[in-house]
Design a protein around this nucleic acid. Sequence first.
RNA 1: GGAAGGGUGCCAGAGUGGACGAAUGGAACGGUCUCGAAAACCGUCAGGGGUGCAAGCCUCUCGGGGGUUCAAAUCCCCCCCCUUCCGCCA
Length: 430
Amino acid sequence: MIDIRYLRSEPDTVRGLMARRNKPELLGLLDEALGFDSRMRDITAERDAIRQQVNELSKQVGTLRRNGDDKAAEGLQAESRSLGDKEQTLAAETDEVTAKLKDVLLRLPNIPHADVVVGTDDSQNPTITGPMNLPASFPEHQRVAHWDTATALGILDNERAVKISGAMFTMQRGAGATLARALCQYALDSNADAFEEIRPPSLVSTATLTATGQLPKFADDAYSMSKDDLWCIPTAEAPLTSIHAGEVLAEADLPIRYMAHSSCYRREAGSAGRDTRGMLRSHEFDKVEIFSIATPEGAPAMLIELITRVERVIANLGLPYRIIEICTGDMGQSHHRSFDIEVYAPGCDAWLEVSSISWFSDYQARRGDIRMKRTGQKGTEFAHTLNASALAVPRVWAAIMENFRQEDGSVAIPAVLHPYMRGTTVIHAK
RNA sequence: GGAAGGGUGCCAGAGUGGACGAAUGGAACGGUCUCGAAAACCGUCAGGGGUGCAAGCCUCUCGGGGGUUCAAAUCCCCCCCCUUCCGCCA
């Protein structure tokens, strides 16, 4: 959520920053929020004034009763009772307007950082690093789609995955399955120097998915279990963020660094039929996420740290990659500033998004009520959250199949993964 | 899933309708004392919302939500969570 007090005190600044997202309807939402807020404060003030009178009368009733003056007490009770009726009407209206305001605020996206490049869509995302490791040209034997290579090697069996679960599910076998797991282990080990490993729940509550921003607006994208009011996590970001929901953290304990490997579940409601072959898009995939809660002033440095860490993980695999910044028109709902790392896949002839590194400012913290207390100061403020996919398995797996395919159709495994491959350094057909 | 007992501030813990946003103890922080520390003593010590230049004032919050009442931590209802026992189970 954005800060309603910020919007209230500097509406034009917020309008200006939000306009950079190039979504005109957002300005209407801002005005709606301002309207509800103004109304809410008016009736709250009125309601509280009546409550004050009721509280005072009740105190007097108590005193009169104790002194045995029941007749006077009854008079005051009657007076208080009629005030109570008025209070109830106002309270009902307050609740209604508050709910409306909250609904608008939950749907409003985050305010982009002032340095984010303005654009309308992903075609305007600037490349800020690279391309790195990109050869001038690729030999023919690398111009083969990973699904063909992997199916021929017997390490990808999507046909049976579809039989088991339906369209857009994948299944790796043998060295292919080992490779998927090796990538996770490698990504975790690469960040274990500073990040505490977490094994969070994969099924989470509505509140948890609301904190990170998936709900209420993107409910169709998530799998839900209506019997139990639980949701399958689309990313470990959700449970990691809510670890400290409702807590007040000491400034001295920040930044907090967590990492987690999890399966991720996505309905891909808007993209049925797209990227249906191979490993580019599926309903269930594995990912290692790195996550941090930082102070507002510590957040920019943490963003750099996350980018640096993810870049190192990808670069050490030897894959061609580039880093792009997400422009205002392409930014996600919760993002304050965001970067993607893409790897090049010569077989598909496409840049594949394999990691997203994001700074959420206090947007998620406000939704999840994650606060911090400054050393030696009174009061609290919202912390900042940031996260990055350290490694999303399927597309990296696919890029390895295409970049390291050899003339005989086998695939060489990057050296950094060898420790996790049970001795396999090249995947040959069985 | 069934039964019983619980959920109060940073922690422990009192509070069963009115003087309670909450006794008492501990912790923490500030101070006095001290060369310094300990002890002792004094003080501070919840968060949200509204309002105000500010000091302050008002309001809400005792797991969550509803209800009864002039008045609820306290009475009633629903839900959640924790503990123990039983059942089931990898």
